[in-house]
Amino acid sequence: MGIDTSVIWAVIIYFAVFMYVLLDGFDLGIGILFPFVKGKRERDTMMNTVAPVWDGNETWLVLGGEGLLAAFPVAYSIILSGLYLPLIFMLVGLVFRGVAFEFRFKAREGGRHWWDKAFIGGSITAAFFQGVSLGAFLDGIAVSGRSYAGGVLDWIAPFPILAGFGVIIAYTLLGSTWLIMKTEGELHARMVQVAKPFALLLLGAIVVVSIWTPLRDPAVADRWFTFPNTLFLAPVPILVLLSIALLLGSLKGKPHRWPFVAALALVFLGYTGMAISIWPHIVPPYITIWEAASPPASQGFALVGTLLILPIILMYTLWSYWVFRGKVKADAGYH
């Protein structure tokens, strides 16, 4: 029995996209949280918590996109054609956020507020259109043969828009719990206040998506609600409820790491539920990973290099976060 390189590549791409959502999620969440904090000192602290690591987070987005091109070129052409505009808007948001990140600290006092606005706008735009792209992907992309058959604005629909706001909520929660772990004093207390309602909003968004998706797609309903699948998949919703309980409980007293751990668990479970719902399709609901795959020789050739570089990316990511662990102060940096 040979090795199924299509399955291996699907796992690599899912993992890369998840790592991007995980790492850049709280990064973008900090920009979304800027309107909740007005003081320059506090905003400086917020940005300093991710200043040493933020630009490495996009590595995972590049890996996921290039992996899709190398391993599943049919899916790449269809998805990029169908989601061209929201992905462009997402990239524009990331550009504004990145430029504002660098220029804000160099701006004169009177002009800094423009870079603050660019940072906020870029973060919200990137997060929203990431959600819109995800929602349009899950909603189904029109396909004719091996080509995109829809229109330029097919992504403007209720479910993608809902997903856009859902991602903003998720990133805001990740950002607030990250800052709970990394800051002290008034900013820490403010983030505890912000995290509570956004935890409940995220739970509401998960419930809405969990109801909407199977009602819209009978195949998803069969995947989740037929025996014995229901028994095997029951841990996912149970763990979601336990994670919410852990998150809300850990926000009492003097929270530190556990709110962030619980928020990560919620994002992971939501992402896992999505993967379960669409598997093995890579262009839902029409094209599977095997139908979209490049020739086995091409997948194998690209896989060798990817399996060599992937541990290196993981190691430098873990090392950078380990080096810059601990609390951050506006004047003193890490300690």
Rank of each mutant, 00 (worst) to 15 (best):
R216Y: 11
R216V: 06
R216L: 07
D217W: 14
P218E: 00
P218M: 04
P218D: 04
P218H: 04
P218N: 03
P218K: 00
A219M: 08
A219H: 09
A219S: 07
V220S: 08
V220D: 10
A221H: 08
A221F: 10
A221Q: 10
A221D: 06
A221N: 08
D222G: 15
D222S: 15
D222W: 13
R223T: 14
R223H: 11
W224A: 12
F225V: 04
F225E: 00
T226Y: 01
T226E: 11
T226L: 06
F227M: 04
F227H: 06
F227E: 05
P228Y: 02
P228R: 06
N229E: 11
N229S: 15
T230Q: 14
L231Y: 12
L231A: 08
L231N: 08
F232T: 13
F232A: 15
F232N: 13
A234K: 01
A234H: 01
A234M: 00
A234Q: 07
P235W: 02
P235C: 02
P235H: 09
V236K: 03
V236S: 02
P237F: 11
P237N: 15
P237A: 06
P237T: 09
I238S: 01
I238D: 02
L239F: 15
L239Q: 13
L239D: 13
L239T: 10
L239E: 06
V240P: 03
V240I: 03
V240C: 04
L241H: 12
L241A: 07
L242H: 12
L242Q: 12
L242V: 15
L242E: 10
S243D: 05
S243R: 13
S243A: 00
I244W: 15
I244Q: 14
A245T: 13
A245R: 13
A245S: 14
A245C: 09
A245G: 12
A245F: 13
L246P: 03
L246M: 05
L246F: 02
L246Y: 06
L247F: 01
L248C: 03
L248H: 10
L248F: 10
G249K: 09
G249T: 05
G249W: 08
G249Y: 09
G249H: 09
G249V: 00
S250W: 08
L251Y: 00
L251Q: 01
K252M: 09
K252Q: 14
